[in-house]
């Protein structure tokens, strides 16, 4: 199949998947149900692993396969399972209660995406990469930087506006997805050891946060972090 060798085709596929990652991020902002939110995050991580695989294939960067595999097993399978079990165990209300209502949040995240594009546009230098023979391979994945920047911004926004601690964990994870996307789209992956470090760091962070969320729930009978300002013996 000739188009499997064609970097133009690879570029299309990567951009398309990046667009879907962005759509899923916005879906997370718009979604009201906790469990659905976790599943949307799993789907997003799955697509991210797909992007890493595609970049690895078209760029001949074999270490990215390992990063893709780790993204898939940890973020698309393991963490969602851990989080869903946590939700089941602490038996909280399913509906998330954001501080800002949903349509407005959607509009704000649309605005943040625009900011992301504007910021990323200043890194985009097509005239420099054009000089390399027919750009394609060198430019592969570069245009996903805008999506990555929008992912962090929306991730930050979700962390700020969500009351429930578990949603904030999810927002942190999606923010990290943005970081990973930026890393693979700009540099075809950080050195493997750094990525391994980040993955295990993340895994431990989620475990710790999970325990913390459980304790918050036990102590305050709620996961609303705005109640944490009260002292209680």
């Amino acid at each position: 199949m000739h188009f499997f060798q064609d970097p133009q085709f690879g570029n299309r596929i990567i951009t398309l998947m990046a667009a879907f990652v962005l759509v899923l991020q916005i879906a997370m902002v718009g979604q009201r149900w906790l469990v659905t939110n976790i599943r949307v995050f799993a789907a997003q991580s799955f697509l991210l692993a797909g992007i890493a695989n595609t970049i690895a294939y078209f760029n001949h960067a074999p270490h990215l396969y390992i990063a893709a595999f780790l993204t898939f097993t940890l973020k698309a399978v393991a963490l969602p399972i851990v989080l869903e079990r946590l939700v089941k165990r602490i038996d909280i209300g399913q509906e998330i209660a954001p501080l800002v209502n949903v349509p407005l949040s959607l509009l704000i995240s649309g605005g943040l995406t625009t900011v992301g594009y504007v910021v990323a546009a200043s890194f985009h230098r097509p005239e420099e990469t054009m000089s390399a023979a027919n750009l394609s391979v060198a430019n592969l994945g570069h245009n996903t930087l805008a999506v990555a920047v929008s992912l962090f911004l929306i991730g930050f926004y979700m962390m700020i506006t969500r009351r429930k601690a578990i949603m904030q964990v999810l927002a942190l994870l999606s923010l990290e997805n943005g970081l990973f996307l930026a890393a693979i789209s700009l540099t075809y992956g950080m050195p493997l050891i750094v990525e391994l470090g980040i993955f295990f760091d993340l895994l431990v962070a989620v475990m710790v946060l999970g325990i913390l969320v459980y304790r918050i729930q036990e102590t305050f009978d709620s996961m609303d972090v705005s109640k944490l300002s009260r002292l209680r013996g």
Binding site: V23, P103, L106, L107, Y117, N143
Partner: peptide, 17 residues
């Protein structure tokens, strides 16, 4: 609103991708 945001994202991405 989701439809509108999708449309707006589409419009933004025509200029960049």
């Amino acid at each position: 609103a989701v439809a509108f945001i999708l449309g707006a994202l589409a419009l933004i991405s025509t200029f960049l991708f």
